[in-house]
Write a protein that binds this DNA or RNA. Sequence first.
RNA 1: CGGUGAUUAGCGCAGCUUGGUAGCGCACUUGGUUUGGGUCCAAGGGGUCGCAAGUUCGAAUCUUGCAUCACCGACCA
Length: 569
Amino acid sequence: MRTSQYLLSTLKETPATAEVISHQLMLRAGLVRNLASGLYTWLPTGLRVLKKVENIVREEMQRAGANEILMPMVQPADLWQESGRWDDYGPELLRLNDRHKRPFVLGPTHEEVVTKLVANELSSYKQLPLNVFQIQTKFRDEIRPRFGVMRGREFLMKDAYSFHLNHECLEKTYQIMFDAYCRIFERLELKFRPVIADTGSIGGEQSHEFHVLADSGEDDIAFSDSSDFAANIEKAEALAPTGERAEPTQALTKVATPNVKSIVEVATFLTVDIKQTVKTLLVVGANSEGEPDGIVALVLRGDHQLNEIKAEHLAQVASPLTFASDEQIQAAAHCNAGSIGPKGLTIDVIVDRSAAHLSDFVCGANEDDHHFTGVNWQRDCGEINVQDIRNVVAGDASPCGQGHIEIKRGIEVGHIFQLGQKYAAAMNCAVLNEAGKNQTLTMGCYGIGVSRIVAAAIEQNHDQYGIKWPKAIAPFQVAIVPMNMAKSARVKETAETLYESLKQAGIEVLLDDRKERPGVMFADHELIGTPLLLIVGERNLDAQQLELKNRITGEKSLIAIDDVMTLFK
RNA sequence: CGGUGAUUAGCGCAGCUUGGUAGCGCACUUGGUUUGGGUCCAAGGGGUCGCAAGUUCGAAUCUUGCAUCACCGACCA
């Protein structure tokens, strides 16, 4: 490709709306352009990278035995009603009507469509297992699109779905996909970790996320400092403190705490360690059918944070988690939010393991501007329901039994699930088994955010001058940068000859034939991150040499023109 | 969904307080100059100042409404 024919579209200045480095560089290097909130056009350079990521993913899926298909992006609503997700999915699901007023959705994922497909196509256990995948645009009407293509509303995703007669067979494919994912991210040269994850709205049993480690990531990942345990913080278990709870030593005392509301204020006012306080959160409860019903109290140690995912998995708590309104708080606790405590509440109380381990602690007195000190669970509150409902924090004992927790940020670029029979059962996806009986299939599903990987790769690979692409996904393998081509016939001829021979060898080469000053060219190529620059100039031509510059290492060296092709062997 | 802020040329911004029909840098066009790290000089082109209504002789500027974009939050107990 010649820059004179190419839509390079680099920007000298950073657009004001771009917050994270990958978004800034994607705009500056001319990879993408914003169309509307969360919607991006891919320019030639960005598309080249996107296609390379896509191809690596495709190759590894095929190597793992998956079949590529392509399903429609627009899906009939009745499929979603059949699976139950028409009601469950919420406003992220963009719904629309066709000209006949028939309801459709823009596909945020394809479990329904693929389950329907397989239900129709398969009839015998002999056809199992089957793994199909597609690489396709998804649409999710995100609450808050941000960070460019990192969390766009429209994005490119690889989604695979496997079908099995039983759970053992699913486990095998799940492991094959787990390994395929590791190979993909290794080929992409990204620093990544598989982590244990929650299954979220997709539903199902076991699940792993694949995270690219970067400070700009949106997820907290909990690691053990002495094993390979890693889990999304949503899922990382907080172990109960070891040892017996200390015996009460203090008398229960009610103290006035005028205008003292937050836990920090309480601890400061009473000069106690924040770890000797508990906070009580009131949330909407759930009845035996899982319908929202009543109010439930959740009690945490003052310095801990509620883990909403863990809380909403509890049978007594409504999902999604909803905090009680001020009126509901008054009705349940007879005081304002700043003074609630577990003692004397008539509603269900669920106590976190760490809070349950305290003795002689401080809590609200369920009376405005008053707290209790010297509270003890058994003595003052009776039997309590203890659960794990907090986020782990750095330094906690690792749930794997080895070492302690460390927390890092990650960008979720892949997610694999053991779905089980949720969709197959809802959509009647079954085959005849060996006994000639109808048997519902067991499913797995496996996603990779292809467009997000492009952003994640930049987050991990950049410097002050621009992007430093991993070799496997660089938009071009090499750029030819001629010095003063307009004035020197020799430079022009050498550059052109080199360009032709590289092109013929199938190498992705960009010839910078613009009439620009060297500094402009260098700056542009550093910005878009081409790994190798071949600099053609009068200076070295007498010796039949070129300058070779490595974008990643910054090394400069001289190379004989005749040896250039050896660089690509 | 709540809060905050922004919206003036392709991009980054000033002008608004104190109303008089718009400016700077970069980019772009033309000519010259320069040529191994974002040259320099000169001359140009480009804006219904987000949209609508109002106040006024007169609105980018004041008022009201709307839209879009972005950031923060959704842990206050």
